[in-house]
């Protein structure tokens, strides 16, 4: 599924549904992707995570690990699992318009 229309715009995705061009990302796209992942409303907590991982990605070139979100981003691991149930690192990266996290932790 290389190109798909979401939130009224055409966006590039990989086969697993991760965006391939982070520059195409908008907050509207995030809301639509979140809904597809079963998160009906993005709260302040969700945005804190999304903004942190997008900024960290710009700096490091890869989505942060859960440990980094905790240590550097100040996001409690418990909260992360509450906000993005069933696979927080992957889900958050997907909604933030980034590629699939490649690390083991």
């Amino acid at each position: 599924m290389p190109v798909r229309e979401i939130a009224g715009v055409h966006v590039d995705f990989d086969d697993e549904g991760f965006m391939t061009n982070p520059d195409q990302w908008t907050e509207e796209i995030a809301k639509a992707l979140a809904e597809e992942e079963g998160i009906s409303e993005l709260t302040e907590g969700h945005w804190k995570v999304i903004n942190f991982i997008r900024n960290d990605y710009k700096e490091k070139g890869q989505p942060p690990t859960i440990r980094r979100m905790n240590k550097v981003g100040g996001i409690a691991t418990k909260d992360l699992y509450d906000w993005f149930p069933q696979g927080p690192a992957k889900k958050a990266a997907k909604i933030a318009g980034l590629g699939k996290p490649q690390g083991c932790v």
């Binding site: 409690a76 418990k78 932790v105």
Partner: peptide
């Protein structure tokens, strides 16, 4: 590669 020390890892796994 961001693998924490055992004590911190246990906390993380529990959380």
């Amino acid at each position: 590669i961001d693998i924490p020390p055992v004590d911190e890892f246990l906390e993380m796994i529990k959380d």
